[in-house]
């Protein structure tokens, strides 16, 4: 299989991808916000906040400016053909990250916890974060998620059974964990949020599973019937909490709920909740073929 692109093509496309990711709200997220607006009472704080959110998204796209100043932790999921070297791909994306930072599309966010020094260019140990998957196709697919810090701070993991929450090791127990997490988050994760749930795994795998859900389109449908039902029920329940946009009240506390499950040990039953702010900046690009 021959590849019809070079690593320079990857760089160019990756820069486009990052700029788009920072400045444009994905269409499905925008649609969910518009739908939310219809649910809120005219003249309410919730309606005003959603208006501001939508107006800001329009301005950001038009002015080519980051829609949120917290461009977060950049996460990249890269699927690549076997002929390409993972190291060269990582290097290409890192190069582009530096450029996007210089151009003001990304805030320099990488801070060394030992020296407290901000690297200034979004590079550091474990920063940005990459995950690579080899695939059979002859193209490269890069998915980017800019994961804000405020919402990361309210993300949380539970270990079941949890006596205080009266959560057993089943989906009803999972539901109790998630409602607890969203109640505790109030408006601090920039509600209305998008909620990724990871069930099972070890601690790290569970959180990763939760985070991977954030890459999903809000309008998709979970192929696993039990998870689909869980997502739908939680979506309705969480929106009854009354927390609302920015925690200032309203009918819209979440824009979407997405759940995944991976095998666990007999000893462990983890439930992880990855909170994504409404500014769910994710984008995808394919180089050398169609996505």
């Amino acid at each position: 299989m021959n590849l019809n692109f070079t690593i320079q093509d990857v760089e160019r496309s990756a820069l486009d991808l990052i700029i788009r990711c920072s400045c444009e709200l994905p269409p499905d997220v925008r649609a969910a916000l518009e739908k939310a607006l219809d649910r809120e009472k005219p003249g309410s704080v919730a309606e005003r906040n959603l208006h501001a959110i939508l107006e800001n998204a329009t301005l950001a796209a038009k002015q080519r400016q980051p829609l949120c100043q917290d461009t977060g932790f950049p996460l990249f999921h890269i699927a690549y053909p076997q002929q390409l070297s993972v190291r060269s791909l990582q290097h290409a994306v890192e190069k582009v990250i530096v450029r996007a930072t210089e151009q003001g599309y990304l805030r320099p966010n990488a801070v060394d916890p030992l020296t407290e020094k901000n690297s200034g260019d979004n590079r550091g140990r474990g920063f940005p974060q990459f995950s690579f998957h080899e695939h059979d196709a002859a193209f490269v697919r890069i998915r980017c998620l800019l994961k804000g810090g405020g919402s990361e701070n309210v993300s949380v993991q539970y270990s079941l059974p949890d006596r205080e929450l009266r959560a057993e090791r089943d989906l009803s127990g999972v539901m109790r964990c998630v409602t607890d997490a969203i109640y505790r988050a109030q408006g601090k994760g920039c509600a209305p949020g998008i909620i990724g749930i990871g069930i099972g795994g070890d601690r790290a795998g569970s959180l990763q599973c939760a985070k991977e859900q954030l890459f999903r389109n809000l309008e998709d449908s979970n192929p696993e019937a039990a998870l689909k039902a869980l997502e739908e029920e939680l979506f309705l329940k969480l929106n009854q909490l009354g927390i609302g946009p920015m925690g200032l009240g309203g009918h819209t506390t979440v824009l979407g709920v997405k759940a995944g499950a991976i095998h666990r040990l007999p000893a462990s039953y983890f439930v992880s909740v990855a909170y994504m702010c409404w500014a769910c900046r994710r984008s995808e690009i394919c180089i050398g073929g169609d996505c």
Binding site: A52, A60, R107
Partner: peptide, 30 residues
């Protein structure tokens, strides 16, 4: 309260950046 994430809306109200303190030590965001 300001609306979280509405960064451009607020940036558009900035007429000028008058000064900055601790830029070197704390980095841009801080």
């Amino acid at each position: 309260s300001a609306v979280g994430g509405a960064a451009v809306l607020y940036a558009n109200t900035v007429e000028s950046v008058e000064a900055v303190f601790r830029l070197e030590a704390f980095g841009m965001p801080e």
